[in-house]
C-alpha cells in the first residue's frame, strides 16, 4: 500500500533519528528486527540476570513482539502480525537498561515501561494488530537464531522492508 507522507526509518536506528520521531506518526521501517514474545523474554531476562551472553546484541536492537505461523512451502515466513506488548512489560525495563532501542507490538504499555522508554531514548511502535499477512509481505529474510524448542516463540532475525508502524511512545 502507498501511504502518503510516511516517514522512513532504517533499523538499527541511531539516537538522532529516534529523537526526530513524534507520537502518532506513521513510519515505514526497514532493516533488522528480532522476534521475541513471552517465553523468549523470560529467557532473555534470565540470561541478563545470570550474566550470560544473549543470542543477539541488545545494544541498539529492535524487538518485534511476534510469534509467526509456520512458513508455507516456498515462503520465507508465515503470517507475522504483532502480539500484545503489555505481556512483555515485566521484562522490558531490564532490556532497555541493556541497550534495547526499538520495540514493535500492539496495545498499551505500563507507566513503568513508558517512563523507561523515555529515560533510555528508545521508541515503542504500534503495528496494526491482525494484519499478519500484510506484514508477511514485508519480510525479505528470516533466520532462526535462538530457542528453537520454543516453536513459534523462538527468536527469529528478520530483515524487513517498508514495514508500516505508528510511533506510540518516544
Amino acid at each position: 500500500m502507498n501511504i502518503v507522507n510516511a516517514k522512513k526509518l532504517r533499523l538499527p536506528a541511531d539516537n538522532a533519528h529516534i529523537k526526530d520521531l513524534s507520537a502518532g506518526e506513521i513510519v515505514l521501517l526497514s532493516g533488522t528486527l528480532y522476534t521475541a514474545r513471552d517465553q523468549a523474554h523470560k529467557r532473555l531476562a534470565a540470561a541478563i540476570n545470570d550474566g550470560k551472553e544473549l543470542p543477539f546484541p541488545l545494544g541498539g536492537a529492535a524487538i518485534y513482539y511476534c510469534g509467526p505461523t509456520p512458513a508455507a512451502e516456498g515462503q520465507i515466513i508465515g503470517s507475522c502480525g504483532p502480539t500484545t506488548s503489555a505481556r512483555m512489560d515485566a521484562y522490558t525495563p531490564l532490556l532497555l537498561a541493556g541497550g534495547l532501542k526499538v520495540m514493535i507490538g500492539k496495545g498499551v504499555r505500563s507507566d513503568a515501561v513508558t517512563q523507561a522508554i523515555k529515560e533510555h531514548g528508545a521508541v515503542y511502535f504500534s503495528a496494526i494488530g491482525g494484519a499478519a499477512a500484510l506484514y508477511q509481505s514485508t519480510v525479505r529474510k528470516c533466520e532462526l537464531i535462538a530457542y528453537p524448542d520454543l516453536g513459534c516463540e523462538a527468536v527469529y532475525k528478520l530483515t524487513v522492508e517498508d514495514f508500516p508502524a505508528v510511533v506510540t511512545i518516544v
Binding site: A72, S79, A133
Partner: peptide, 15 residues
C-alpha cells in the same frame, strides 16, 4: 491484509 490473505492463502492473523 485481508485481500492478501485470501489471494495468497495466508492466515489473516498469525494467532
Amino acid at each position: 491484509n485481508n485481500i492478501i490473505a485470501e489471494r495468497q492463502r495466508l492466515y489473516c492473523c498469525q494467532d
